[in-house]
Design a protein around this nucleic acid. Structure first.
Length: 572
RNA sequence: GCGGCUGUAGCUCAGCGGAUUAGAGCAUCGGUCUACGGAACCGAGGGUCGGGGGUUCGAAUCCCUCCAGCCGCACCA
């Protein structure tokens, strides 16, 4: 059974096709009716005919018996009003469907999502928030859509800084280092190493020697390096758990994972004749990229010193994902500043034939998190802010608000709820802003229960659930047909029926904020309904009908939040 | 200099596969209600959609140009 949108869209397309194959009806939710189709005007233009005339013709061709009635408005809009029997049918279907109308992909795709990617021995700070939260939402949405998701954490675990980190590890001793790292003081460790490196020549020499030893595969050096990586990954896992993010240590494929494939990348590019020696570095020049002097811009694969650039690693990873992981889709959730880099990597991969046309591959870029001064979010002292500090602060605020409002919760319950609210605050604030845009981090606004916030949605959900607690007995859908006589009921139902397309459009565009907008809109439709339409004091079929709308509202909000990675407590 | 992103109500943001009066939240102001959780609902004021041109019957949305901000532009990842 198709969703309401699909049912209408198909009928419209059939009629449009009869006049001009492939014409888009441009179907949307409407304020003037239930749905509206705006495509007639464009169609008329392409036919060189009067829009109203074409509209009449389309309406004649439309087969919408039992689905909707149509009127022509303005220059040629088709205003569609859903038929009572369709509404009834769709609502009953949703009541019976845990997926609330979202079809599971008939042919699951293998979707590789690259996200989070913190650096070993470096703190996770606000800069990692967006990539982690957005990536995880996209992972959950893809899973829910029925696809096979392979999450990849492209951790920064290689490079020259590891020389000094290992040398420092040697100095402080493994146990002390492990202790420091496991409590999450990664920055302290890094800074101490950095300070010694800058001040102490002997240390510098040891650090350099360690880099060489590490790259050369020296066993002891490798073991020490492992200690750093393992401790850091363990710490990242704690942060993910705290954030309720599904990424696990099994998803980690650090840069080092691809080390032994870099020679092949270079060799194969050379064999393909794509490699050019430029100032001693081995480069590929994909067409269409220029530098500041208007000259062709290289993707540096192998540096003059024979070390590999990160482009080589990215190419190796991409190849692995296509061949070994058999990806049908690849999503790189990485900050916007890297967009040119990824364009070039993808271009080179296509040139090399490593990225088939049928593999959808995209850089899902995101903007910065800004402080109140609209600059990169830092502490007053100019330090980056730890992710966990941010979370802890949000939990504290949520606890304060809860303790003011709540009555009969034990302290551990308050704590747990506050944690869920805090996560929702931060995640929703992040997800509800269009990805590419920078946004201002304002904890006060995020944890607020008023307005377009995570807690507001959680509250709206909890409020609906409370109706059923109060009801205290089983209920069943109305015997007779749904009679949506009030404006508020009808508006709510329109919202409920629109979940599948809101979800699909959000996923397809890799724009979680669309689903956020939908959920907030739905929550508002619900509260308007709830205010205007008594539920428990109604009786008979009317009560059954309204209970059904309540159940669907709660389920939709909970499911929508859940696929975004946000919890919906039943009570708060 | 080239390229990318951004510029919509006092503030924070949707809308940008063109279309029926440009939306929401916050803030402000005014209402509602013996209130199924008021952390609510209803309404009002508030916008030359950065400026200017163009295409179109119709542009916040498409094209050009200018302005402002952020970012990227060869061996750090």
């Amino acid at each position: 059974m198709a969703s309401t949108y699909e049912t209408l869209d198909r009928a419209l397309r059939r009629a449009f096709d009869a006049l001009a194959p492939g014409a888009d009806p441009v179907l949307r939710l409407s304020e003037h009716a239930d749905y509206q189709a705006n495509g007639v005007m464009a169609l008329a233009k392409s036919l060189g005919r009067a829009p109203r005339e074409v509209a009449v013709e389309v309406v004649d061709l439309l087969e919408l018996d039992g689905v909707a009635s149509v009127t022509i408005a303005g220059p040629g809009f088709l205003n569609l009003t859903l038929a009572p029997e369709l509404l009834d049918h769709q609502l009953r279907r949703l009541l019976d469907d845990a997926r609330l109308g979202v079809a599971s992909a008939p042919v699951p795709r293998r979707v590789v999502i690259d996200y989070s990617s913190p650096n070993v021995a470096k703190e996770m700070h606000v800069g990692h928030l967006r990539g982690t939260v957005i990536g995880d939402a996209l992972a959950r949405m893809n899973r829910f859509a029925g696809h096979h998701v392979i999450a990849r954490n492209h951790v920064g675990d290689w490079g020259t800084p590891f020389g000094m980190l290992i040398a420092h590890l040697e100095d402080v001793g493994e146990d002390a280092a492990a202790a420091e790292l496991s409590i999450g003081d990664l920055d302290g460790f890094y800074k101490a190493a950095r300070a010694k490196f800058d001040a102490d020549e002997a240390f510098q020499a040891r650090a350099r020697a360690r880099v060489v030893a590490l790259q050369g595969g020296d066993a002891e050096t490798r073991r020490l390096w492992r200690v750093l990586v393992d401790q850091s990954v363990a710490y990242f896992s704690e942060v993910y758990a705290k954030l309720d993010v599904t990424m696990t240590s099994d998803d980690v494929r650090g840069e080092s994972f691809y080390n032994d494939r870099l020679d092949d990348v270079v060799g194969d590019l050379r064999a393909l004749g794509l490699l050019v020696d430029s100032d001693g570095a081995w480069c590929v020049f994909p067409p269409g990229f220029t530098n500041r002097d208007g000259e062709p811009l290289p993707l540096i694969v192998q540096k003059r010193d024979e070390g590999f650039g990160y482009a080589a690693t990215d190419l190796a990873a991409l190849r692995d994902r296509v061949t070994e992981l058999r990806a049908n889709e690849m999503i790189y959730v990485v900050g916007a500043p890297q967009s040119q880099h990824f364009e070039m990597v993808f271009a080179v991969a296509r040139m090399a034939g490593w990225l088939p046309d049928e593999v959808r591959c995209e850089h899902v870029a995101f903007g910065n998190v800004l402080g109140p001064d609209r600059k990169m979010f830092k502490t007053r002292g100019g330090e980056t802010i730890k992710l966990v500090t941010l979370l802890d602060e949000a939990v504290e605020r949520a606890e304060v608000v809860l303790s003011e409002r709540t009555h009969d919760l034990t302290p551990p319950q308050v704590r747990e709820l506050a944690t869920q609210i805090a996560r929702a605050s931060i995640k929703y604030a992040d997800l509800s802003t269009e990805r590419q845009r920078d946004y201002v981090f304002d904890l006060e606004r995020m944890v607020s229960f008023e307005g377009d916030t995570g807690p507001y949605l959680q509250y709206a959900h909890a409020r609906v659930r409370s109706i059923f607690r109060r009801l205290g007995e089983a209920w069943s859908p109305p015997e007779g047909p749904f009679a949506l006589d009030t404006h508020q009921e009808r508006e709510l139902v329109k919202g409920l029926l629109a979940f599948p397309e809101a979800f699909a459009s959000s996923l397809d565009a890799r724009q979680p904020h669309r689903l956020c907008n939908y959920l907030f809109d739905l929550a508002q439709r619900f509260t308007s309904f709830y205010d205007a339409c008594p539920v428990l004091s109604a009786s008979g079929d009317l009560r059954a009908q309204r209970l059904a709308l309540c159940a669907l509202s709660a389920n939709t909000i909970a499911l929508g939040l859940s696929v975004l990675g946000i919890e919906a407590p039943a009570q708060m």
